[in-house]
Structure formats: C-alpha cells, structure tokens
Design a binder for these strands. Structure first.
Lengths: 105, 105
DNA sequence: CGGATATATCGGTAAAAGGCGATGCGTGGA
DNA sequence: TCCACGCATCGCCTTTTACCGATATATCCG
C-alpha cells in the first residue's frame, strides 16, 4: 500500500490536492471546489482524485449530489511509518536525527 | 525536490533499491551488486539508479572502475519533514498521533 | 599496449499515464 | 415528472515511462 501512496503523491496535481484537503481538515472540500482550485478539467481531475482515494489518502463521503473529500491523516501516518522503517531497519542510530527534527512540528 | 523523491520511490525496483542500500549502510553496494539483487538488465537498472541519484536519495561514489552507491538518510529525512508539514500546516493536533507512533522506531 | 571489467548512454518498441470533450447516472428542486 | 446539477466513466489522442540489446567510456591488469 505504501507504494500506491507514494505513486499517488508523486504527481503535482495530486500532491496539491492532498495539501489542500489537509488544510481544510476536518470539514473537507467538495470535488467541485477542488476542481476550481487546481485548474483542470473536471474529468481529468476526477481520475486524479480516484488515484488518491484508491491509495487511501483521501476518503470521499456522499453528501446530497456532491462528494465531500477528506484527507486521511491515518494514511499519511502509515506512509511515514513505512518510510521510517526503511531507514531504521534494525539501526535506530539512523533514525534519531530524523525524529529529533520532526518533533519541532 | 520532494516531488522528485516521491516519484523516485514510487517504482517497485527503485523502492527496493533504496531499501537494500539502507540495509547496507554505511558501506554501500556497487551498482553491479545491486543489479544482481534486483534481477534486471544492467542498462535498465542503470536508468532506475539515475532517477534515485537525481532525486538525491542515493549518492554514488567512484571507486576504481565501479560505483559504490549509498542511501542518503538526509534525503529521507527531508522527505519526511515535507510530508509531516503537509499534515501539520498550522495544526499540531494532526501530527501528534503520527509522532507518537514514530518514536517507537 | 591490449583485453577484460564496470558502468553509462543510445536507439527502438511496448505499455502506461495524462489530458480532453462527450456522455451516462444519480440526486435535488421546480 | 422533468430539468439542472455534480460527479464518474468512456473513447481518443499525445506524452512519458519502462524495458531491452548494442555500443561507448573509463579503469584495471597482464
């Protein structure tokens, strides 16, 4: 699943979309609002959004005839845990400077 | 640069390569050793490796006629900081559970 | 110097991704 | 019931990515 998340975030539009949704936590944004923000065709953006949803980074919720999209912080946490394990594989000394800098935020 | 790192890691071969190099820190592995481990043509793997290097995730070092490749933990730290900022944008409450779980490693 | 080794680069092809307009489908309001 | 709205999906095209074999470059060894 980490690979899917990495692939999903590795496109400018999709990364921007995720950032916008985090900024609007926890209310979320409708698909239409997102389309206006990212300046793309509705159909094109719809497929990008589907990639994020499939990777679990965005969770859609039906509201009337529109879809409210929300960023999954849990999914991001999973991804970062995966990346951290990549670094630490049995060697905490590699990760320590990383965590030290992360606690600032 | 975060986008380049995400794109670089979003391919199975390249993710595996990075994991292998972390596992072999700090000695590194030669390109030839990596080729054998990932089971790809030498030329194909060479281009994959170039993507990782360009993204700053892998640092090559010339040794005689071979290249020793090493994982850049700094680059991974940069990437994780970027992702963490995505989550926290002015709202530390989003990141707290993330950091709590990260400290285990 | 000449051959062997390690890696990078080139040329070509097949597959995947990204983009668009048009269309389909469900929902809410008149 | 009918129309407008919001979103997903389809078909098509263009661009990018991935893969390979062949070749170029640099280094070491005899």
């Amino acid at each position: 699943m980490a690979l899917a998340a990495l692939a999903a975030l590795s496109h400018p539009t999709r990364l921007l979309t995720y950032q916008l949704l985090v900024k609007h936590e926890p209310e979320g944004l409708s698909t239409g609002q997102l389309v206006e923000l990212v300046d793309l065709t509705q159909s094109t953006f719809s497929t990008h959004l589907a990639v994020l949803v499939k990777a679990g980074l965005v969770v859609p919720e039906k509201r009337g005839r529109q879809m409210i999209q929300r960023a999954s912080i849990d999914a991001m946490r999973e991804l970062m845990l995966f990346l951290a394990k990549d670094c630490c594989q049995g060697r905490a000394e590699l990760c320590e400077p990383l965590l030290a800098e992360l606690t600032c935020c």
